[in-house]
Structures are given as C-alpha cells and as structure tokens.
Design a protein around this nucleic acid. Structure first.
Lengths: 204, 204
DNA sequence: CGCGACGTTGATTTGCCTCAACGATTGTGG
DNA sequence: CCACAATCGTTGAGGCAAATCAACGTCGCG
C-alpha cells in the first residue's frame, strides 16, 4: 500500500520533471517560479481509448503530454473522423478553439495508449502569466512555432499530392507512424485508408 | 513642398493611430508605453505590385498593414504560385517561418494595391517584449488566434469540397474577394482558376 | 490602338474516393 | 486456452472531383 503510494508519487514527480525540463529548453525559471509552475499542474492518467475532451464540452485546461500518445479529431456531418493532431510525450494537445473562446468543442481528444497528461486550468494559467511572465513567453513562442507548422501543413495539403505528404509525414513523424494504426495516418493526411494502402504498395 | 511634408506627417500619425487602436482592442497601454510602441515602428509605403519580402531574403521585421492589401505566396517547383495569406488594413503579414528561424524566406510578400505598412525590427520587438510586457501578451493572443484559424483552414482544405470552401471564403472575406483578382482567390483556395470559374457558373 | 492581364469554355485526363469483399491479426469472454 | 468477433490492412471495379491543356472573349491601360 505505502509502496504503491510511493510509486505513484514518484510518477508524479517524473511527469512534472518532464514538464519543467520541457519549459527549461525554451525559457528560464527561478527555483521559486519552478515551484509555482509545478503546483499549477495536475496529473491525470488515461487508459487506452479514454476520452479526455468530448465534442460539446468546453475545454478548460491546457494539457501537456508527459507519457503516451493522444489524438485530437472531429467528426464531420457524414460521421467521418478527421484527425487534426497527434501528440506524444512532450507535446501539448487540446481543442484550442474551444479553450480560447470558451465555446463547445468540435473536437475529441482521446488517448491512443495508456497515457499521462499534466493539466492546467485556464484561470490558473492566466494567473500564471502574470505571476511568471516567462510562462507567457513560453506560450507565445510555442504558438508562433505551432502557427508556422500549421501554415505549412495547409500549404502542403493544398499543393502537394498525397504520396509526397505521406513521405514527409513518414520522415518527420517516424515515431508516431509506428505507434498509431495506419488508417489514422490516412485520416491525418486527409486521404482514405484504401488509398494510403495503394500508395504504400506503389512505394515498394 | 511644406504642404507635402505636412500631409506625409499626417499620414504617419494616421497609420500609427491605427496601430495603437488595433493594440488597444486587445491590451492596455499606459501613455508612456504608447509612446515607446509608436517609436518602435517605422512606416513604409508600397506601390502596387511592389515586393516587401523576396524569397531567399531573411525576414527581419513584423509588419502591420495600416492601409492597402498584400499577399504572401510561394512558388512551387513547377513555378506555380500558391497564396498563403491575404492581408488588408489591420492585419499582420510576414513569412513567419523565416522571421522566427532567421532562415531564407520561402515566400514572397507583395502589395496588391498601393499600401502602407508599419514595420518593427525583430531586435526592437524582442526588446519591446521586455519593456512593454503587454505587447508580448498581444502577440501571444494573436498567435493563438492565428494558429486556430490555420488549424481550421487545414481541416477544411482536406475535408471539404472546393465549392463549400469558396462559399465560406466569400462570406468570411467578402471585402478581400472584391479587391483581388479571381485567380488569386483560386490560388488561396488551392484550386485552379478554371475550376473556380466553373464553380461560380454553377452557383448561378 | 494594341497588348497584356484576366476570366471563361470545353475536351480530356488523373488523383483520389466509394463500395464491397476478403485475409490477417489481435484480443477477449467462456 | 481456444473460438469467435472485432479491428485492421489490402485488393479491385467503378465513379467523381478537380487538374491539364488549348482556345477564345473582354477588358483596362500604356
């Protein structure tokens, strides 16, 4: 019993250590600030297939993935899934539109493996921006990067053929490709599983 | 002569007033801070078709459009243009990847009309983030919004047929549609001018 | 006026989708 | 631990959305 508690506590530390290391790669934090940041996040374990955010809910947390693999996706009017984003250790995942505008989410956020995320509530984070300005800088830089990444994804989606996009996905996210089923890669790329299968055959 | 100078000075003020009003819609600025911000930007006039940033150059400024209309676009290997972004009064335009990573731009930024932009140098802006933290908040919020917008554009590009995307563009950017040639709208939507023409015929 | 920039039209081709069926794994309850 | 059901990947036939190519009409403008 005590042993289990110790292990659990150790896992919390581990997860938060990852977060702090992640932040430190981009900004500087004083020891005091580090403590404030640590205390602002809560750990949450997710089983495989567990849903962290449902369509229709309002997203109230930012989520850092300490362990595991998640996806954000939405269902169109024909009940087809479209994957917006994958996330693994060290990534952030959310329906950001819902979070920012406090409107019902259009996306699901779901664990694809047993995962651990660190959550920070919107109000806590907004306070944190004032208490620890470096955190605001962190997110500014983060969003700049994320914005650019999506810009390129958009351009690619419109201008490049599926095969090229697949090959780029492959080199860029080799770790992800091996952890998720192929039909999800297809969904991420905006093509059908059948067509991706055909593509792959062609590449051999 | 003096008269011209007076008009020019008036235009500078006008342009910077627009910028300040733009910032004030999102953040608060003390009178002192306002002056600092004003002095950080330099005005630049652009003729129709003038290029503000060439592919291969490194983008060193953020640019606020005070007046006119610009586009950011890139050329693929087959020398075809792809429009990444339009911008009119009150928008920001740049090859952000180049700006952030200080690598050669892949995009052109070009005026589609006689335009006025306010430029701030990267170094100046980075200093400004420290001097006037509200500016950093402004850009964090800006990029959050821009990120979400591109996320939706990506999803739409992959999941929705061209006709639907065109109709959405139309309602969302009616002001832009009327100011730019139709083939640029097609390029923005990721379709050929011929196909857009056919679509429009179909809609009547 | 004449030229270049822009929009349109039609014929043909192609990239990707739909639907249906079938193996191969995986996983799960009895 | 096996049997059976899901889940996942693959194949192939047929169809549609959008691209390509070529030609032509119409402006606005130097």
């Amino acid at each position: 019993m005590i042993f289990t508690i110790l292990i659990a506590y150790f896992l919390v530390l581990q997860a938060k250590d990852k977060l702090i290391a992640h932040l430190r790669r981009i900004i500087q934090l004083s020891p005091t600030e580090e403590v404030i940041v640590r205390n602002s996040f809560k750990k949450k374990h997710l089983d495989k297939k567990e849903v962290l955010l449902f369509t229709g809910e309002v997203s109230s947390h930012m989520q850092f993935i300490a362990d595991g693999c998640l996806r954000a996706y939405y269902m169109d009017d024909e009940a087809k899934e479209h994957i917006v984003q994958f996330g693994i250790e060290g990534w952030w995942v959310n329906d950001l539109y819902s979070y920012l505008t406090q409107t019902p989410a259009k996306q699901f956020v779901q664990a694809l493996e047993k995962s651990t995320v660190l959550q920070i509530h919107r109000d806590t984070l907004n306070d944190l921006y004032n208490e620890v300005p470096a955190v605001e800088r962190f997110f500014r830089l983060k969003f700049e990067k994320a914005y650019v990444a999506f810009q390129y994804r958009t351009i690619d989606a419109m201008a490049k053929p599926a095969e090229e996009r697949y090959l780029e996905f492959r080199t860029k996210y080799r770790d992800i490709e091996q952890r998720v089923p192929q039909y999800m890669v297809a969904s991420y790329l905006g093509i059908t599983p059948e067509f991706l299968s055909a593509l792959r055959k062609n590449l051999r």
